[in-house]
Design a protein around this nucleic acid. Sequence first.
DNA 1: CGAGAACTTATTTGTTTCGAGCAAGTAAGT
DNA 2: ACTTACTTGCTCGAAACAAATAAGTTCTCG
Lengths: 203, 203
Amino acid sequence: MSLATGLTQAERTERSDQLMLEAAVELINERGTRGTRLKDVGIRAGYSRGLAGQRFGSIENLFAFVLRRVGDEWLDHLMQATRDQTGTEAVSRALDEHYRFCVDAPHHVQTFYTLWFESVSAGSELADHIRSIHRRRHRDVLTWICKDPCIRDEVKADADAIAAQFCSTVIGIVYYWLANPEDLSGTRARHESLKRFMCERLQ
Amino acid sequence: MSLATGLTQAERTERSDQLMLEAAVELINERGTRGTRLKDVGIRAGYSRGLAGQRFGSIENLFAFVLRRVGDEWLDHLMQATRDQTGTEAVSRALDEHYRFCVDAPHHVQTFYTLWFESVSAGSELADHIRSIHRRRHRDVLTWICKDPCIRDEVKADADAIAAQFCSTVIGIVYYWLANPEDLSGTRARHESLKRFMCERLQ
DNA sequence: CGAGAACTTATTTGTTTCGAGCAAGTAAGT
DNA sequence: ACTTACTTGCTCGAAACAAATAAGTTCTCG
């Protein structure tokens, strides 16, 4: 029985990429990075035990692939939510979107941040990619502060420290969410109080 | 040639525990958790390839052992630094000690927090232990706030949110340090501005 | 123009190496 | 002699890569 699909080679590759992405997301979320096997990704995706290894070359490259795919999706959402906003409005929208994504698309967010925290483990090949995301985030927050016409100059002079605190606190909130996924109200409360504290600080 | 050490069995165990602990710390810091092998821990510690496996049973149990050993050391330091302090003094001391530990004992702190972040990966057996540390930290900060005679009641009414923000931000700062170990001034600046923001908030 | 061959790429299966985990053995202490 | 710390042997599973097979693409020739 022929398994011809009628797809082009490129379409076949994209299809298997997508199926293996979803399989990897599931497996990382179920078993963590240390329990995720290339073999299982291939099989879970409906292919052979060897395809993931053939396609990605290593588990690290698979993680990098997943991070890019999932991270791009998430960063797009964040950018849409804060487009053309500055100051407290941008902060509020970012935090609302952040929380909403935790609620609505938990699987991809869980994977994204699992890999995010994985990146600080020695030898991780994700570090450079994540570092660039960090810098981007920090710069975005800095821009929200410095471009806002309502924020006083003395606050703007402290923008770098405020942005650093904000980004650090978001990391900690995400950590809380990953560690306590059933406690959405605790996660929400942390988003809300960070919003409150930031709004106070930016007045 | 006899390898008799003149130690009791208990002393022999403690010695090998300690040597394997140090080996594990080195290996985790060099290679990350995913690159750390029970075999290598045994050999690095000066024993056979099989001892770590025999002693700990699994890599997960080794990590739990390391976390307890290193974490107890670190938590002792933190407790000494904040003993009998409340309010902004406790906060400042905790942050100073936190930063100082990053500078003076980076290897153990790196390992501790590497495992800390590892614990949010699915399937990690460290999660419960870390969760209890979290609760403890949160409660400590809450106590610092509520027991301080100089903090106003309206601030005390918000103590839970403030404590949650503080703990979250510390996590983010640690993350920054792990991701940017060469940038001690950035880590120090984050500690200092968190100190500043907390002191403002607690007035 | 269409069929089939040649070529390229996607996917599968085979094979080797390495580490985990546990059993069996040896060394050191009681 | 007995118990416990540590070592070595052995089996199995996964990674990584090679070799093979399947599917799509392009070219050639009747």
